[in-house]
Design a protein around this nucleic acid. Sequence first.
DNA 1: GGAAATCTATTGCATATGCATACAAATGCA
DNA 2: TGCATTTGTATGCATATGCAATAGATTTCC
Lengths: 158, 158
Amino acid sequence: MARRSAEESRAAAQRLALESAGACLLFRVRALSRTLTGIYDEALRPLALKPTQMNVMTAVAARGEGRLSEVADMIALEPSSLSRIVDVMRRNGWVETVPDPEDERARLVRLTASGAALYAEAMPRWRKAQARARELLGEEGAQELTALANASLSRRAP
Amino acid sequence: MARRSAEESRAAAQRLALESAGACLLFRVRALSRTLTGIYDEALRPLALKPTQMNVMTAVAARGEGRLSEVADMIALEPSSLSRIVDVMRRNGWVETVPDPEDERARLVRLTASGAALYAEAMPRWRKAQARARELLGEEGAQELTALANASLSRRAP
DNA sequence: GGAAATCTATTGCATATGCATACAAATGCA
DNA sequence: TGCATTTGTATGCATATGCAATAGATTTCC
């Protein structure tokens, strides 16, 4: 079989690409994620709070005081990712971690007073962003997205 | 007004958090995005090809030869992000960039022969991942997601 | 024709994430 | 009891992204 020229290879790739372009579900969900991230990020920017950090704060605040691994489970994030996100939040003085008296390996994380205050300040902004996102997706779209994510989230733990 | 103790602040934050936990659309779409990313990433891992790179390859392959800014528009990515993604792909020998003869500022990007070959090899794997993703979301869910992302993508350019 | 605005790409800075590894602590089982 | 396994975190390594600022080229508009 003769070696293909670069032009021939590219032409073949182009046929494949045209067939699949725009169909990729991952591409779509990522584009959507970037768009929504921009909406929330813009709303939270005056507080220097990132969307991810807001999500972590919500989980930590709702939990009251919990292990890192518990929080990671709540938000379906890898422990290694959460570990570093919490690092930043700790540097910012928004959360503090203390050793878990029941397990020397574990650390409990909770909001500091300053973190709780920031969270209270962030909520109205989050609500605005949420409203904008809902407007972009449409009421039905928002519900569909929620349902889709639920399916994905509940599929954890075999 | 008396200063709140950290406990009081946390309790207030907890009330706010419980009210909103699980409702955040951004959190949902991100969790979904991470899940799908994992599916495609696993399928492409034997080729050392990342999902994002696959998306870029598809756009570049479909375009044939185009400016970075055109490709960035196609996939709704910031030029600065694309610039670095293309860097990596160039280092890997999958794409090459040449100056645009019609505009000294611009650079044209295209697949190399090696990149086109890799792309051809990646497509069956992509199809498998796509099938798994479709299975996870359900046929309807996949269509809804596509529609949602379309709304987000088409909202570009005022 | 030339200054000002615009466009194209890149880089600095900061986060976000995942996988593989490393380690320490806790648990289970022989 | 003692060792193997599991579990909870943290780190190394690599990529992914966005915003702001920059450099250079082009276009626009006096």
